[in-house]
Design a protein around this nucleic acid. Sequence first.
DNA 1: TTCACTAACGCAAATTATTTGCTTTTGTGC
DNA 2: GCACAAAAGCAAATAATTTGCGTTAGTGAA
Lengths: 186, 186
Amino acid sequence: MGHRENPRPGGRSARVQAAVHQSVREMLSKMDRADVTIPLIAQRANVTPSTIYRRWGDLQELLADVAASRLQPEGEPARIGSAREDLEAWVEQYADEMASGVGRQMLRDVLATIDGANAEKCSGYTQQQLCVLIARARENGEPFPSLGELMDHLISPIIYRILFDQAFDAGYARELVARVMRKSNA
Amino acid sequence: MGHRENPRPGGRSARVQAAVHQSVREMLSKMDRADVTIPLIAQRANVTPSTIYRRWGDLQELLADVAASRLQPEGEPARIGSAREDLEAWVEQYADEMASGVGRQMLRDVLATIDGANAEKCSGYTQQQLCVLIARARENGEPFPSLGELMDHLISPIIYRILFDQAFDAGYARELVARVMRKSNA
DNA sequence: TTCACTAACGCAAATTATTTGCTTTTGTGC
DNA sequence: GCACAAAAGCAAATAATTTGCGTTAGTGAA
């Protein structure tokens, strides 16, 4: 039986997963990443290392799993006013979160695993959020970029800069929004 | 003295680096990635494991180092005809290379390390190539997108798709070129 | 409720990887 | 050639990972 996707809530499997995830989050916030090892995580979570090895395989996959679950958005994008304003506010928060030290590291963890399941999941979260904004714009009859345009010309440049460059300022995100809106309205 | 940047050519340090890099490349092409370990690499390269540990730290950093050096372009973009044609040809090759199994893995290796030096280096390679194309366009008086536009609206979407999605077809790159050229000419 | 069944866990021994102190080699500048 | 320093080799100590086997806990049927 797959344990990763649907551990029955309240079961032993779910308890172990929760304990391990929490242990990882605590350690990542308190210690240097190089000092986070599976035996230590296991100790804090009150499980044996072999349990973690059997369930996740290695540290990278465990970190990717934790990172993916942390990258899941809490709720829907805030309602500010127009769809464009909602988008601007959402992008600012998204960019800040991803560009922070923790965010960068989560991105890297998610991308480091061999199978792209976690990465795909994260991209899916982003697309869901954008779809909500698109739906709102449609309800209001506001012109709005398509999901493809938003992913290609707003999300992609932000993530690329975060991953490959060091430089990333807040105003840049606003500029991208302006550009993608302008283009969509033309 | 820093050994990573300027090992004097022909020195012992350079020989070890070459042997280790070659050993890694061979193993990555022949075996499953999970079976590539530092002791094995060391054995093939005729060095002791401790040499690798001291120089690179861990497997991730070594793989990132090797990947970064493999991502360095061989020469200048080919001259086909107009700057736009040159760009189209270059992007096609770039996208194919990055989207291949080996390319994806190299990207992930480069991004996995904590300090972004290798990632920055790779982005720098890409920008150098694009600058050559931009310079050619300027010489010919052809209209052409700026480096920023090319990075944001051509390179970023390609890399994002490769990293986060599975789907990536060749025609998509051409479409992006058309879009970024259209925009630049407007 | 009980009972049989199975997935997941704990434990501990065996294996493998990593770290480290010390010695030796090799290339560089005098 | 000689002295110096950086990097490599070696081997012992430590730490992480794998694995076989016994145990526990949740699940579903009677």
